[in-house]
Design a binder for these strands. Structure first.
Length: 692
RNA sequence: GCCGCUGUAGCUCAGUGGUAGAGCGCACCCUUGGUAAGGGUGAGGUCGAGAGUUCAACUCUCUCUAGCGGCUCCA
């Protein structure tokens, strides 16, 4: 006699065991038809699940009441579509062995081992989609059946796929008491797969689907293990939703910083210079310079001192810091004096010996700096410090070089040479909390000014099982506590992630997503007891004894490259006035107005405004189109009428209609004000005041 | 680094085993036009690089290189 509690608190009692579908039917047929699954005591299950005990039940419908997407329903749908795709792929490519096919936030994938002589190609997608279409049309029910562990494992072994056997073993390790299989249709007759479920009722519920892309992956995510092919797809309950999704992807592409970087002439990457090396073109340089000036002003307010240090340092420096040779793989090769190299070569020294001798310190050389901290430590250590001096805050826009794997490089967001808005704070243990909080508030200030609200905060802690973290565990505990305490004061949710710490200390990272949903770490604050130890740093305390300072590494933007890459996407290239490479463009109606246009231009420039004038032999409509495509904040049209009134006709980016006419002096003053405020659009506001 | 895809004019992209085309941009001419493309003419390409197959390769094969999507990595 199960008593079933529904989300609204209603309790429904049944004489016998019932399926969740029956419960839905008892409420209403329309509801039952809209259901794809259910949640029993908080666990997502099939709609056909039989309930024979008291429980709470929540029905999962295709859409929420307000017609928005229901993530749980989509998860089930996509998991089910993964099965359909897998069946289709096995029809198209016999011998393809299934590994693992989970749902994702915006679709699903299936990892598959293809026969060596028959890899999957994008050209196969059409055939796969056709087969999928047929399976959907057949509207076969997803049918679950359970087997005992021993029977199930025997079945898997008999099927001969080590991957599925492995999945079965993993389920057993995770504590499963049985193994569940899902047949797409009738068990024993139709295609089936070992799967924990749950699934939607039948294939006919898949309204729209698409095979998206191919990638490789590794079994168990281990690069030394089997290489698998990962097939990505997505699906929706309706064709319309699918199309909307595909359109969103197209729109996102237009906001991609690599696309906009070219279109708006913000940066350039040249094969001849090297991959992952950003050439800042004049437009992008304006954005960077404005941001750097902004942060430099903030740093002065917060008591930082700016320093400059070179791009290279001796190998020995990095032996002391621990960067070399532990991270040799991700650094540019060391620079060794030419004569020395010739000498070694004459002595028959091999590359391997050379490398080895560099590690052991027998050969000295220089390294492009992978981090700024060793240099800053040496600045700090260039003179003795009293506890009264602390904290010492040293800041530098420091350029570092790292040998990132070629497959990892990505526009401005993952590069081999980049400039961190770096600083290192040397303080007493008592000062850590205040200093970390000061750093965090700086990051928040920046994010607020730029209107970046969509970020998450991650506190990276050490992984107790990993050997890569150096230093005293007691200090680690202190540092981790300091980070967690500071993060708690932020007022935004944060996650704790073991294994995400730097090798020398825990950190607080600000993570944002790009237009295609990839996450990037921007700002970071890291507490470090380790490097002061390695470099034997000290200060004289009130007790006249030597004490060890603690270091805080922090970079609110992270790197100028990555930050601006993300920022381009955040603004979709339409920068606010203070950042816009070109703030105002003057558009004379015809040659006859060129003189006045020139005068307008001079006035703008005299106020430090980045303005140009489009004197091309074109109609003003064309000039407006060109100016709009470059996403210039203000276009001002000037013709005889304006010249006579000493006015300009203003057009603001993103506003379809022109704002109207404004006296020239007033416009110049308004733009200058908007520039200095770094915030709201004062020009538009003035028009609103006029019309109000 | 691994798997798949891509590389043709400054940009976006068509294209064929017989040494190339469009639109935009650029130059010049006409046009002097009041809010998202006025018209004409012209210049511009070792078809990513190298090797191979072929009478003939931008096209087919291989290697390399770079970009894209993932995987792995990210002090």
């Amino acid at each position: 006699m199960p008593a079933i509690t529904l989300p609204d608190g209603t309790v429904k009692s049944f004489d016998d065991a019932v399926s969740a579908f029956d419960v839905a039917m008892s409420i209403g047929e329309r509801l039952a038809k809209a259901c794809v699954g259910c949640e029993i005591d908080g666990e997502l299950r099939d709609l056909s699940t039989v309930i024979d005990h008291d429980c709470s039940l929540s029905l999962v419908t295709e859409k929420n009441r307000d017609k928005t997407d229901n993530p749980q329903a989509l998860e089930m749908l996509r998991h089910s579509t993964a099965h359909v795709m897998a069946e289709a792929i096995q029809r198209v490519v016999p011998g393809a062995m299934l590994v693992y096919g989970p749902p994702l936030e915006s679709g699903f994938y299936y990892d598959i081992k293809f026969p060596e002589d028959r890899p999957l190609k994008e050209g196969d997608f059409e055939a796969i989609e056709q087969e999928m279409g047929a399976i959907v049309k057949e509207d076969r029910a997803f049918t679950r059946y359970d087997m005992s562990i021993s029977d199930g494992m025997e079945k898997l072994k008999a099927e001969g796929s080590k991957y599925k056997v492995d999945n079965g073993e993993a389920a057993v390790r995770a504590g499963s008491e049985s193994l569940s299989f899902y047949a797409t249709g009738e068990p024993g007759k139709d295609w089936e797969d070992l799967c924990r479920g749950p699934h939607i009722p039948s294939t006919g519920r898949i309204g729209g689907f698409k095979v998206m892309s191919l990638a490789s992956s590794y079994w168990h995510g281990d690069e030394n293990s089997d290489s698998l092919t990962r097939v990505y797809g997505t699906s929706f309950f309706s064709k319309k939703d699918l199309n909307a999704h595909l359109e969103r992807l197209e729109e996102a592409k237009k906001r991609d910083h690599r696309v906009l970087g070219k279109k708006l002439k913000l940066f350039h990457i040249d094969e001849t210079v090297g991959q992952g090396l950003i050439l800042w073109t004049p437009n992008g340089s304006v954005v960077r310079k404005e941001l750097q000036n902004f942060i430099a002003a903030e740093l002065t307010k917060q008591g930082y001192h700016e320093v400059f240090t070179p791009h290279i340092g001796k190998l020995d420096l990095y032996r002391t810091s621990g960067h070399f040779p532990y991270y040799a793989d991700s650094q540019f090769p060391p620079l060794v004096e030419r004569d020395h190299l010739v000498e070694l070569s004459n002595e028959g020294c091999t590359c391997a010996q050379l490398s080895n001798n560099m590690s052991t310190g027998e050969i000295e050389g220089f390294m492009l700096k992978p981090m700024n901290c060793p240099h800053h430590i040496k600045v700090f250590d260039s003179q003795p410090h009293s506890y009264k001096d602390l904290p010492v805050r040293l800041a530098e826009f420091g350029t570092v070089y790292r040998w990132e794997q070629s497959g990892e490089l990505n526009g401005m967001t993952r590069v081999r040479g980049f400039t961190q808005d770096d600083a290192h704070l040397f303080c007493t243990p008592e000062q850590i909390n205040d200093e970390v909080q000061g750093c965090l508030s700086l990051v928040k200030t920046i994010f607020d000014v730029l209107g970046m609200e969509d970020y998450r905060v991650r506190v990276g802690l050490r992984d107790p099982d990993s050997a890569k973290y150096t230093g005293d565990p007691a200090n680690w505990d202190k540092a981790e506590k300091a980070c967690l305490d500071a993060a708690a004061t932020l007022g935004v949710p944060f996650s704790q992630e073991p294994g995400e710490a730097a090798f020398y200390g825990p950190k607080i990272d600000f993570v944002v997503k790009d237009v295609i949903g990839r996450e990037w770490q921007l700002g970071t604050v890291q507490v470090d007891y380790n490097l002061p130890e390695r470099f034997d740093l000290s200060y004289v305390g009130a007790d006249n004894e030597k004490h060890r300072p603690v270091m805080i590494h922090r970079a609110p933007f992270g790197s100028m490259e990555r930050f601006i890459g993300v920022l381009i996407e955040h603004f979709a290239g339409a920068f606010p006035v203070w950042l816009a490479p070109e703030q105002v463009r003057v558009l004379p109606i015809s040659e006859k107005s060129n003189d006045y246009a020139q005068e307008v231009l001079e006035q703008l420039k005299a106020r430090g405004i980045r303005a140009t004038c489009d004197m091309a032999d074109q109609r003003v409509q064309a000039k407006i189109k060109n100016g709009s495509e470059m996403k210039i904040p203000y276009l001002v049209v000037v013709g005889p009428r304006d010249a006579e009134n000493r006015a300009v006709s203003v057009r603001a980016f993103g506003v379809a209609k022109d704002l109207g006419s404004m006296p020239l002096d007033e416009f110049v003053a308004a733009v200058a004000e908007e520039y200095s405020l770094k915030g709201a659009s004062t020009v538009k506001e003035r028009f609103e005041t006029v019309t109000a």
